[in-house]
Design a binder for these strands. Structure first.
Lengths: 233, 233
DNA sequence: CGGCCGCTTGAACGTTTTCAAACTCCGTGG
DNA sequence: CCACGGAGTTTGAAAACGTTCAAGCGGCCG
């Protein structure tokens, strides 16, 4: 839970890339900048725990956070990732519930923490901001609905193919067509909703079929079209 | 798509039971009542289709609506039910997307239709209303996240037990401990995310184990505790 | 009364999980 | 510098789980 004592620079803390704030007045933006607490975070740090009361929410300026629920016998189910420009933790504050997920940093980064009361004030005083947040929640709800249908109806193979495509869309590929996100086999399994061994077997099958190339956690996407088709997207 | 020509009475159309409207001014409430279109709806009528643009949303005053996505080869995945006091269809309007689900009446009822522009106006002009809608979306998002984890991690048996308990909580039991909702085996399967035959087999297993009693679509809950435990709730 | 839809059961099949074991990589401490 | 330990990865084999196909039954609506 240790954090670097160095505080990120003004620029690293800028919330301009968070389009959610675009409707704030100058005054409100000043308030946000005054209240925000930005820090460097390292891999494996936990931002908040499922079941705990949320005291605030986070804006990701750099790095990657995985958001997951802990199911039976401790198995993680990854619900989403947050990266540059995304916010997380706002749901529980607005619904006035305890956190329904845990958020863990998986790639070192810079995050700004904003206290819950600020979110509530902004939501109540600025209809534009409020609408942006509502829109976000509604979009996430739509994604969650698709996710439910996918997990319920697709085979593990289809879901893995789909997840690879979704990861490509969210995190992009480098110049070598390699996924710009590094996940363990277990994490992949926890997105897909299957056993680690199944992911391993299927990935090496994808490799045999010329769909991907594997090099440790680096996954090079060779045939987007075939993966898309296999995933029924 | 035929509707009864009879228009529901003022009382049957009352939106008082929809707590979402509790923050409206008298003036706004008048506007809602002026714009709303209430009708009787019969089983099997479809309110809106997945993929279509939403022109408005619905408030349920009576009856039950199932909300589902259509997956591969046409198999339905039921995402939610709406009954007295619930609203549906608001998500797509707020996120400005096409409908991500289809809504079909499964129990005759009375519904009030409200045009999309009204929702948007209210959300933009009344922070209290806006907050209620946001809260609702966030709650539904939390439920969806749990649903994802359940489907991904629980066995079909566990999920069926859980679904029975959830149906009990949502729709209640009559004086004879029978579920106050009538679903086909296929619909049950489409909630649980499994094959119809699996539901049938498991239900009759539950019956053998003294957990339920079956009489066509009537399901009598005999042992809530055992079902709760089996469902890992 | 016929036909359709939903329900039920059996049996075979395929997929996925589980368990066990071995191997690799990497960082730490002797 | 090397051995050790641990975490993550890989593979195999057996077992469990769930689906699919096929067939028959029953009730309800037209």
């Amino acid at each position: 839970m240790k954090r670097s004592k160095h505080i990120p620079t003004e620029e690293e803390c800028s919330l301009n890339l968070h389009s959610i704030f675009k409707h704030l007045t100058e005054e409100e933006m000043d308030m946000v900048n005054f209240e925000k607490e930005c820090n460097y975070f390292k891999r494996a740090e936990i931002l908040y725990h499922e079941g705990r009361r949320m005291t605030g929410f986070y804006c990701v300026n750099k790095g990657v956070v995985k958001i997951y629920k802990t199911g039976i016998d401790g198995k993680e189910q990854i619900i989403a990732f947050a990266q540059r420009g995304n916010i997380l933790g706002y749901r529980s504050i607005l619904s006035n519930e305890n956190a329904c997920t845990t958020a863990k940093v998986i790639e070192d980064g810079i995050l700004c923490y904003l206290p819950a009361h600020l979110l509530l004030e902004l939501v109540n005083n600025n209809p534009g901001f409020s609408f942006e947040v509502m829109k976000l929640a509604c979009q996430e709800l739509g994604e969650a609905n698709s996710y439910i249908t996918d997990i319920a109806q697709k085979t593990v193979r289809e879901r893995l193919a789909e997840v690879l495509i979704l990861l490509k869309e969210k995190f992009g590929l480098d110049s070598n067509n390699t996924l710009q996100i590094s996940l363990t086999r277990e994490e992949l399994a926890n997105i897909v909703g299957t056993a680690t061994e199944s992911v391993i077997r299927l990935l090496s099958e994808f490799k045999s079929d010329g769909l991907v190339e594997l090099n440790g956690r680096k996954i090079k996407i060779l045939d987007i079209q075939a993966l898309t088709k296999m995933g029924n997207i």
